[in-house]
Nucleic acid binder design. Structure first.
Lengths: 229, 229
DNA sequence: CAACTGGTGTAATCGGCGCTTACATTCACA
DNA sequence: TGTGAATGTAAGCGCCGATTACACCAGTTG
């Protein structure tokens, strides 16, 4: 929408004859080779530059050095491209979460729960546009993106399990676990989206403090659900 | 973006001669009279039908019965129109909040805080697209929308004050009030956006239960910050 | 009353976009 | 070596936001 992308055009540089010379390094192979991946990367880059709305199929094609119609050989629609972009972003997100969880204390479920939330918040704060892509169903159809759905379902199951462990370990005050889980998700998701949606300036929160505030509200929440000592 | 709007066009009905006949009821006055307001209403309607992205200046003009260029006499850009739409939505939101607060218990600050959160959640759940418009800075420039900014600043100040009252009344356990406020906001905002962004189906939350879950997580949060009895 | 002036709408147009179709080129495999 | 499928290009459709030149109308002023 509202393409703000201007694109410096150019591209006039020497339209070499297509016939590949005997020893020339194949200046313009007709077939790109890995266009699909390059398109996703270009789109991911566009997301990083101007948000999800700044992604246009044509611009991605331009950056990949192909004609405007070429991407439609690989993606039936712009939304399908965005879906692939979202899958890639989700892949990175998940890798981060799992890495964080690997370095979490084993015997302290609530501590692991905190690690999960912290990793979620950190990644969202440091990759706001990528987070934006995976957060809204408008940008891609979550239900159809099997990879994403299962990824997310796994993450949901993971927090559920962690919370259950924390409960049996006697770390939680009595409450509905499902409600705790949803509330926790709403908290971190809301904080991340407040960042994306530009709410923090109005709260007097600059970028550097935002991340430590994220940690603070997570701890506030956890204290709220933890059994008082 | 990605106009899905089809618009049945038509509009061919009798292009009466412009000269107004002696007693005719002025079939097509050249000047619309209140185009600005009508455009905002049309845009608001479009938001309700297909989300914020479904708003196009041309479609709003179509529904107002004017030419595609006419809106630009009143709004320098589509974003300016969206800003006006957001101001209208924010006006309604604020009215709802204030009405809810009017019927809140006077001597119980924490109860009033709960009322605030509940009104926020309820309005957001029942007017998801309107909420979407006022929630994202992408759809309009919050900082330039003086009316909105001050509205929102007032709401922020209101919750801050309510929390402070709850604290002096001894209703809160020791904690940073600002952090409580931000956490509370993140919670309700996150829940509302999870609804907008279509997360709830993945959580097994249907529309009817969502609203009572909203209440439940709000209570969970409030119990977390309240002084234990 | 007539003429001017400023506000508001129309018509035409521009470039960008998503997407489709027809055609060109190349690769992989029989 | 030939041939079909895969993958690129070229051209074009209709939509969009936005701009410009022009038409119309209302209210003021002489």
């Amino acid at each position: 929408m509202r393409r703000s992308v201007k694109s410096s055009a150019g591209k006039s540089a020497v339209v070499r004859p297509r016939r590949r010379a005997a020893r020339a390094p194949a200046p313009k192979p007709y077939h790109h080779g890995d266009l699909r991946r390059v398109l996703v990367e270009a789109a991911l880059q566009l997301v990083g530059e101007g948000g999800a709305d700044a992604v246009s199929v044509r611009e991605a094609a331009r950056r990949a050095g192909v004609s405007p119609g070429a991407p439609f050989r690989h993606f039936p629609s712009r939304d399908a491209l965005m879906q692939a972009v979202a899958e890639e972003a989700q892949r990175r997100f998940r890798a981060e979460i799992e890495a964080a969880l690997a370095g979490a204390p084993a015997g302290d479920p609530l501590g692991r729960f905190r690690c999960l939330g912290l990793a979620y918040l950190r990644w969202a704060m440091r990759n706001p546009t990528h987070f934006e892509v995976i957060s809204s169903r408008r940008l891609f159809d979550h239900d159809r993106a099997a990879a994403i759905s299962s990824d997310n379902a796994e993450l949901i199951a993971l927090t559920e399990q962690t919370l259950a462990e924390a409960f049996v370990a006697g770390q939680l005050r009595p409450a509905d676990l499902k409600q705790i889980q949803i509330a926790g998700r709403a908290l971190v998701y809301g904080f991340a989206r407040m960042n994306i949606d530009g709410h923090f300036p109005r709260w007097g929160l600059a970028a550097p403090e935002a991340e430590q505030t994220a940690e603070a509200i997570l701890d506030l929440f956890i204290e709220g659900i933890a059994k008082r000592r």
